[in-house]
């Protein structure tokens, strides 16, 4: 992720130009922004709303409706722990508690070194290999607290 203060506006304009003529453009545009700069800054609402002929309130409404979109810069890595029933049946509660304790943060928080943001997730589609977690774009199955420690250590390196 680059320093966003530099090219944010140019980037944003390019992404808006790429997406604004799609039918139902808002979600694809928000995804593109978040993929590109890691989050959807509130400062982008004005340009988005103008380009798509929406009110700022409508843009804000959509961004905040969906769990996937975030309005603040996350850590370098995002660790999602599945909280759904299948993972619960295989001890995900202990895994959650372990993650919070060893990272010393709660859900929706980032470690002080800005390395890991911890998020809950409700099903990763890996239910035959519960409990599951997702680190960035990869799913890990049959996780034990020790496996989780190893995974955290891997991205800390």
């Amino acid at each position: 992720m680059q320093d966003l203060t530099v090219n944010l506006d140019t980037k944003l304009d390019a992404l808006i130009a790429q997406h604004q003529n799609m039918p139902g453009a808002l979600l694809p545009l928000l995804h593109a922004i978040q993929d590109n700069i890691g989050f959807v800054p509130e400062s982008s609402y004005m340009s988005i709303s103008k380009a798509l002929s929406l009110s700022v309130a409508e843009v804000h409404g959509v961004v905040t409706f969906y769990h996937h979109f975030r309005t603040h810069k996350p850590g370098r890595h995002i660790l999602q722990i599945c909280r759904a029933e299948s993972c619960q049946s295989m001890g995900s509660e202990a895994l959650e508690a372990h993650a919070k304790k060893c990272l010393n943060i709660d859900y929706h928080q980032t470690t002080p070194d800005q390395n890991i943001t911890l998020e809950p997730v409700y099903c990763l589609g890996n239910c035959a290999l519960s409990p599951a977690v997702m680190m960035d774009e990869e799913v890990y199955g049959r996780m034990t607290p020790a496996d989780l420690d190893a995974l955290v250590a891997e991205v800390a390196a």
């Binding site: 299948s86 993972c87 409700y122 099903c123 239910c127």
Partner: peptide
């Protein structure tokens, strides 16, 4: 949008 816990056939 397969969101049900315990399902993965769509995936």
């Amino acid at each position: 949008d397969e969101g049900d816990s315990g399902t993965f056939s769509d995936r």
